[in-house]
């Protein structure tokens, strides 16, 4: 019996520690939110930033929420929605967003999942038991319009996230999809992008002689995209 209990506990721990990988289908869910019941499938056709925070009414999370709201209009222009999550009740979320509006003058327009049973947090590996067994860490899942996980960012509880980087990440992914390219370090829209390296000697020879790209070497060539 005790062996069975141990195995079940191990299984549960594995579930908590598992997170969806880049390129895998985003785990489906239905959840109570500040905007009613929402399913992941409701976002089909839009990009989605699903992010978790440790708890409502905490200082770092409050600054993050105001900052997420600040980038929300820009994200919407990029066909990207925001969906928050913490292991708090919907009433706590409602009280908190009302406080943010009252004290900071910022109206939170995106929904927040009330994940009291940790169902969504467990599916997405948002709980790191070594950090906290009862709160989610600061996870960000970028899910594309086909509901595939495209990027994952994890921050500890003590460090607030960088919104400019999140916007830049979406811009990079969407530009890569549109043009079939990659983006270099610190890339910003308007900067040159990286052309995928050639796979054959012949293609490498052609690449270095291609006037439409700027090459440092055959494997590192850049071009402009519009």
């Amino acid at each position: 019996m005790s062996e069975f209990v141990n195995q079940e506990a191990k299984k549960q721990e594995e579930v908590v520690n598992t997170l969806p990988r880049i390129g895998s289908p985003a785990p489906q869910f239905e959840a109570e939110t500040t905007h009613g019941t929402i399913r992941l499938e409701d976002y089909k056709g839009s990009w989605l930033i699903l992010f978790s925070h440790p708890a409502d009414f905490t200082p770092v999370c409050t600054t993050e929420f105001a900052a997420f709201q600040e980038i929300y209009p820009k994200l919407k222009e990029m066909n990207t929605e925001l969906l928050g999550l913490s292991i708090d009740s919907v009433y706590s979320h409602i009280a908190w967003v009302r406080t943010i509006e009252e004290k900071l003058g910022v109206k939170i327009e995106f929904p927040i999942i009330a994940d009291l049973n940790k169902e969504v947090a467990s599916k997405y590996g948002m709980i790191m038991p070594e950090e906290s067994k009862t709160e989610a860490v600061r996870a960000v899942f970028v899910i594309d319009d086909k509901q595939v996980v495209r990027a994952v960012i994890y921050y500890p509880m003590s460090a607030g996230r960088n919104m400019e980087e999140i916007v830049r990440l979406i811009q990079s992914l969407q530009t890569s999809d549109q043009h079939g390219i990659a983006t270099p370090a610190n890339w910003k829209p308007g900067d040159k992008v990286i052309v995928p390296p050639p796979g054959t000697q012949e293609a490498a020879e052609e690449r270095v002689n291609d006037d439409n790209v700027e090459c440092i070497d055959w494997f590192l060539c850049k071009k402009e995209v519009k």
């Binding site: 009613g36 976002y43 839009s46 919407k76």
Partner: peptide, 8 residues
């Protein structure tokens, strides 16, 4: 937003 229309 489309997600809100679908859920509603």
């Amino acid at each position: 937003p489309l997600f809100k229309v679908r859920s509603s």
